[in-house]
Design a protein around this nucleic acid. Structure first.
Lengths: 366, 366
DNA sequence: CTGAAAGCGCTTACAG
DNA sequence: CTGAAAGCGCTTACAG
């Protein structure tokens, strides 16, 4: 075996380069390196792979894609990855994609229609085979653009009429929160509503309001504050609600981080949860149960939601018939509403007490 | 103008297809569609672009890359995007990349050397022009693989000897936390150390220990608990520290979320910060200042760190000489150590009191 | 200003 | 089992 110059000589290692060194045709090298080498002698396969390994050969994905018309790439659109909710959903998507032999490429669109458009263009240029849409909004025409481009897609987290989606039953989640606060006797409640153009924010709020209205206590509009889903937005909305002439006795926030912001606003006014104001969050992130005042929250299965959306998309790519999925939310009552005194460790076993559906899993996509 | 069938007829719109419809050569179409059309009549440019718009033409990125040898893609490796610290750094990277005409593709490696390897391979197959490495570890040979592959790279957040990196001065950050707790009279402290194979965890811990040793109170090894950077790890390490025969009077956690976990462990034992145990976190995330008990934390400029790492990589790609950067940490004292009583809104104006450097920004890469 | 050709790196019928 | 050729969609010297 003659000693080679260096693992990666100068420039890239190509099939042609390997073929030349081995004295065989480039097509033979291609066959030997294919997943399942057929029509090549075992000996050739060994020789080729040996050299390819030594030289650090890596198949050029662009050439492969150009030739075969396939990329094995899935595009994922999210508003922002710095929101751990979306990051967790994406994690489920990515892991499921990898297990199925696909790779994902994710873009942040910051909930801005202009960025949705340009980032979608980018993904289409890169020939993604499918798209998972985590940033659909009622005030954007993203969906109609998607319809025109001929690439299969599935919505996740946020849904839209007549579109295939995988999401939490947010209407029900809002209702669970309302029923919990109603049962504790709260009549004047405030809502940190999240983004009204996202179905998550809109439906959590709607489910909550409907339940309160049905009980005879329809929340007035000025107790419903549109917001983002982050700490800062929650803080601002909380400041607003607590400054009302007759502040609410309980606040429902459409996200856990918004709820933390509400608690910050309370703290700075010398208010305590639940003594002065009860607080309910949404999503039940890890942080909720470990807060100094543990947060009552509506759990939604984020990782599973991402994973399922990917499985639905894979079915779609295989030409199967698919339908939308609604995952079940579960409310976990904690000290921010039911007022466990600090130190009573038995009163709040994390992740135990459930209200609502027995976290029934939807039937898997076949 | 004859009426067209549909915007995206069947299959993809290519240059050849446009050329045929216009009765010109494909190379003419290519020129007309190029960024800066040169050597084409203005009229042709208009005609071509008009039709391209109508037909929804999108340049095939694979073909472009194969032809030009350029991809304008930057790879980003992180342990996990569900850690908001990394997500924020990535956000800085991505925005800076876009502004410079590049796109990023990010991979999660979960701090597993095997995944580092396979995901790196993937990126190299996709012909990334540079890589930003957020997951370097002392127990992985990722760096030596990177050295052999001929693609420029820059480390971010975690650093390694003799490698170009952009990170926070974690040694100093640890020292700031130690000086703060020393000044409050704490002598027996516990450390939730983070991952010892990541320079962030190792150096924050080392800086802290050195300062305590220098003051005459070297922390014993069994008060230093290796951990992850998440809530759960912090919770477990906190449980451990608080169960010691002589529990610490203060705990330094290498991340804010780990600190929240520590506070959860305290709460379940009926302990309060800072009355029973003082707590210091690291990174100063948004959530830190809004917690029911606001968390004293060492701020590090995460978004800027990501952005700067991208600028350094861009310099490297332009063949310039670059050097490592160390960003300055700043300690923000809050109620978890200095015991502001709830309701005193003037005692903790978020983001105001500083200890340490005046957040001096490093000189920008030219 | 426009056309014709070559070629990026790869896979895949088609011969032999 | 191996070779030779075609072609994926694009850009870019090279002619005219």
């Amino acid at each position: 075996m003659p000693s080679r110059k260096s693992p990666a000589p100068r420039g890239t290692v190509t099939l042609a380069l390997l073929a030349e060194q081995l004295g065989v045709h480039v097509s033979t090298v291609s066959r030997a390196l294919s997943e399942n080498p057929v029509g090549v002698s075992a000996e050739t396969v060994t020789r080729v792979r040996q050299l390819a390994g030594e030289q650090g050969y890596r198949r050029n994905a662009a050439a492969l894609s150009l030739r075969t018309g396939r990329t094995k790439m899935i595009g994922v659109m999210v508003p922002r990855l710095t929101d751990v909710v979306l990051a967790t959903i994406y994690d489920g998507i990515d892991q499921t994609a990898i297990d199925a032999g696909y790779n994902t490429v994710v873009v942040n669109t910051r909930d801005r229609p202009d960025l949705q458009r340009s980032r979608l263009d980018l993904m289409l240029s890169r020939q993604v085979e499918g798209i998972i849409v985590g940033d659909s909004r009622t005030d954007s025409n993203l969906i109609s653009e998607l319809q025109g481009c001929g690439v299969p897609y599935v919505l996740v987290a946020r849904r839209m009429p007549r579109e295939i989606s995988v999401s939490t039953d947010d209407l029900k989640g809002g209702r669970l929160a309302a029923e919990h606060l109603l049962s504790l006797g709260h009549r004047r409640i405030g809502i940190v509503a999240g983004d009204p153009h996202a179905s998550t924010g809109a439906e959590r709020t709607l489910g909550f309001r409907r339940a309160y209205a049905a009980a005879g206590y329809p929340p007035p509009d000025d107790y419903v504050i549109p917001s983002g889903f982050d700490v800062r937005s929650g803080r601002e909305a909380g400041d607003h609600l607590l400054s009302l002439p007759r502040p609410p006795t309980a606040i429902f926030a459409a996200s856990d981080f918004a709820a933390v912001g509400v608690m910050g606003a309370m703290r700075d006014r010398g208010l305590e949860a639940p003594r002065d104001v009860a607080v309910v969050g949404f999503n039940d992130l890890d942080v909720a149960s470990e807060l100094p005042t543990p947060l009552t929250s509506v759990h939604s299965p984020l990782f599973d939601m991402g994973a399922l959306s990917m499985r639905v998309l894979l079915s779609l790519l295989r030409g199967r018939q698919v339908r939308s999925r609604l995952l079940q939310p579960t409310l976990y009552p904690r000290a921010s509403t039911v007022g466990t005194s600090p130190g009573r460790t038995d009163a709040d076993p994390p992740r135990r007490p459930e209200i609502g559906a027995k976290s029934a899993r939807p039937a898997q996509v076949p």
